[in-house]
C-alpha cells in the first residue's frame, strides 16, 4: 500500500519537508513518535520522526536530511509520487505534562523532531525555552515554526553567522548560571551534542530525556540492532524508546555503533552532515 506525497518543500540545502498521506498514523501519533519507511522496494528501512500532523487531511509531516542512499531516494520523490512502505507510529510518545519550564534543545536535523515536542509542551501549559543550534545560518531550518511553538526561542550558530555564536550548551550553561529555572529538558541532535547537554543538565540536576537516533531495521523489537545501554541495562530504542533518561545513556557506545556501516555506505560518495558537530 503506497503512501502519497501531498506536498514537498526544500527547507535548506539537503533538507526536505514532506507531507505524506497516512490517515490512520495521523490519527494515532503523539509527539515523540516516529515511522519507518522504504522509498522503493530495493531501499533500506529507515526511521524518521513524525514532525507534524494534519488530522483533517490525514497527513503526517516528515523532515529528512540527505545523508546517504535512502534519504537521497526519499528526497528525489516529488509531489504526487508514492513512498513504497511506511509503518508507524512507532516508539513511546514523549511524556508530555506541565512541568513548569521546559528547555527544548535541538541541534542540526534534530530540530525537526523537536518541533512537535515543543508544541505539545507549550500546549500542556509549560513555559517552553527552545534552544537550537546549527553550524551556520544556511543550515538553520524551521525557524518560524519553532518560534511559534515556543515561549522563548534562542538560536546559536557555531560560526556566529546568526543568533548567538557558540553551542547550545553555552546558552544552556549561561541560563543555569543566571539561576533561570528549568524543570525539564529534552535534547535531540547529533550524539556529541546530546552528550554535552546531558552533562550540563546532570550537574544542574535537571531531569532530561534524549531521543536516540540509532540504526534500525524493523522498528518492532525483532532484531535488536537498535540496542543501547541505559544505566548499564540493554534497551531497544524502537520499542523501549526512542527517548531515554539522558543522564543514563552510554553515548560513546551509541556513537560507535552509528559508525557500523560508515565504510560500506561511504563507498558511494556521501555527505555525512549528521556526523558533524552541531
Amino acid at each position: 500500500m503506497p503512501y502519497k506525497i501531498l506536498e514537498k518543500k526544500t527547507l535548506a540545502d539537503n533538507v526536505v519537508s514532506l507531507w505524506v498521506e497516512a490517515p490512520q498514523i495521523a490519527k494515532k501519533r503523539e509527539a515523540g513518535q516516529f515511522i519507518i519507511l522504504r522509498p522503493n522496494d530495493k531501499s533500506e528501512r529507515i526511521p524518521l520522526t513524525i514532525a507534524g500532523v494534519k488530522k483533517e487531511v490525514g497527513a503526517i509531516r516528515l523532515i529528512a536530511q540527505v545523508v546517504g542512499d535512502t534519504t537521497r531516494e526519499l528526497a528525489a520523490l516529488n509531489e504526487g509520487d508514492f513512498i513504497r512502505d511506511l509503518a508507524g507510529p512507532l516508539g513511546h510518545p514523549t511524556p508530555i505534562k506541565n512541568y513548569g519550564t521546559v528547555a527544548c534543545i535541538g541541534g542540526g536535523i534534530g530540530v525537526a523532531p523537536m518541533l512537535p515536542i515543543a508544541a505539545a509542551m507549550k500546549e500542556a501549559g509549560n513555559h517552553v525555552v527552545t534552544i537550537v543550534g546549527a553550524r551556520t545560518k544556511e543550515l538553520l531550518i524551521l525557524e518560524d515554526e519553532l518560534r511559534e511553538a515556543s515561549s522563548e526561542f534562542i538560536i546559536t550558530t557555531d560560526d556566529g553567522s546568526y543568533g548567538e555564536k557558540g553551542f547550545v550548551t553555552d546558552v544552556l550553561k549561561k541560563r543555569i548560571a543566571n539561576s533561570a529555572k528549568i524543570d525539564f529538558a529534552a535534547a535531540i541532535g547529533p550524539v556529541p551534542m546530546m552528550k554535552a547537554v546531558a552533562a550540563v543538565t546532570k550537574e544542574a540536576g535537571i531531569p532530561t530525556v534524549a531521543s536516540l537516533n540509532t540504526i534500525m531495521i524493523d522498528g518492532t523489537g525483532m532484531c535488536g540492532g537498535c540496542r543501547v545501554t541505559i544505566g548499564g541495562e540493554v534497551k531497544y530504542t524502537c520499542v523501549d524508546g526512542p527517548e531515554f533518561d539522558a543522564h543514563k545513556v552510554d553515548f560513546d557506545e551509541l556513537q560507535n555503533r552509528l559508525g557500523t556501516y560508515r565504510e560500506q555506505e561511504n563507498k558511494e560518495e556521501h555527505n555525512c552532515k549528521l556526523e558533524g558537530k552541531v
Partner: peptide, 22 residues
C-alpha cells in the same frame, strides 16, 4: 516470539555482534 535474546556478557554491543534475527 520475535524478540532476540542475548548472552548478557561483556562486549556484546561491540560492532560486529548481531542477533541471528538481525
Amino acid at each position: 516470539a520475535g524478540t532476540p535474546k542475548f548472552l548478557n556478557i561483556p562486549g556484546e554491543n561491540l560492532i560486529g555482534v548481531y542477533s541471528s534475527n538481525e
